[in-house]
């Protein structure tokens, strides 16, 4: 992770779209009037959904909307790495997982693919359609290596598959998210070898659990005398 800064080139202003504004008001209404600032994270997220990233003018708009100092909004926006502080690819924004399981399963190769096809991380491609960054674990280690593209996880990737997916995006298609080697969510990759014993599922294998250090059970609980 590097120092998070607002982008150098900023738009002059920011306006909520009608739809986003409605959602924003729904969030704000969830909190008491004097605790409106609780809605700052949902609002930042809505801005990002609308614009693709969080711009400086939008921070001011949010601060005014929630009646909070703009520095507090900036603190939140810079704290959470999920908020993009500079523009991201219009068509596809790739967040490649580079943490250990994915790295062991070939994330470094995917990294080179992205570098070749899109360019340096945190930079827009020349046409502005693509950008990418490496992120920490996205919690889909069973399906390593993987990348999150826009809102969805693309799993069990290989350099060829990732190239194909990016090409599909470039061609205006929307590739199917999920595993790309045909398995369902995170089920075993090949034949199932473990947990096949039916006894596991009919309750007969269960042992009685003894919780340590519990006080001895009173056989005949009496009402305690009033102190």
């Amino acid at each position: 992770m590097s120092v998070r800064r607002l982008a150098k080139d900023q738009p002059d202003s920011f306006d909520f779209s009608k739809d986003t504004l409605k959602k924003a008001q729904w969030w704000i209404a969830k909190y008491p009037d004097n605790r409106k600032q609780s809605a700052v994270i949902p609002l930042l997220w809505l801005v990002q959904k609308q614009e693709g990233w969080v711009s400086e003018p939008s921070l001011r708009v949010i601060a005014e909307m929630l009646g909070m100092p703009v520095i507090r909004v900036l603190e939140v926006a810079t704290f959470y790495t999920m908020f993009q502080l500079s523009p991201v690819g219009r068509v596809a924004f790739v967040q490649l997982c580079g943490t250990t399981p994915c790295m062991l399963r070939g994330a470094n190769d995917l990294n080179s693919v992205l570098k070749k096809k899109i360019g340096e991380p945190h930079h827009l491609s020349k046409d502005g359609n693509f950008s990418w960054e490496e992120v920490e674990c996205l919690g889909a280690c069973c399906n390593a290596p993987m990348a999150a593209i826009n809102d969805y996880y693309y799993e069990d990737l290989t350099p060829q598959l990732l190239t194909q997916i990016l090409d599909d995006f470039a061609a205006g298609k929307s590739p199917k998210p999920g595993s790309h080697i045909g398995r369902k969510s995170s089920e075993p990759k090949d034949a199932v070898h473990t947990l096949t014993d039916p006894k596991l599922y009919d309750g007969s294998a269960a042992k009685k659990i003894v919780i340590p250090n519990l006080p001895p059970k009173e056989t005949n609980p009496k009402k305690a005398p009033a102190a």
Binding site: R4, P69, V70, I71, R72, E75, T78
Partner: peptide, 20 residues
């Protein structure tokens, strides 16, 4: 009573700053 100074970013990168 003027919230003008803040602690931005996180972890090793935190910085004390005013807004812009």
């Amino acid at each position: 009573g003027n919230s003008e100074i803040g602690l931005i970013s996180r972890g090793e990168d935190v910085e004390i700053t005013t807004y812009l």
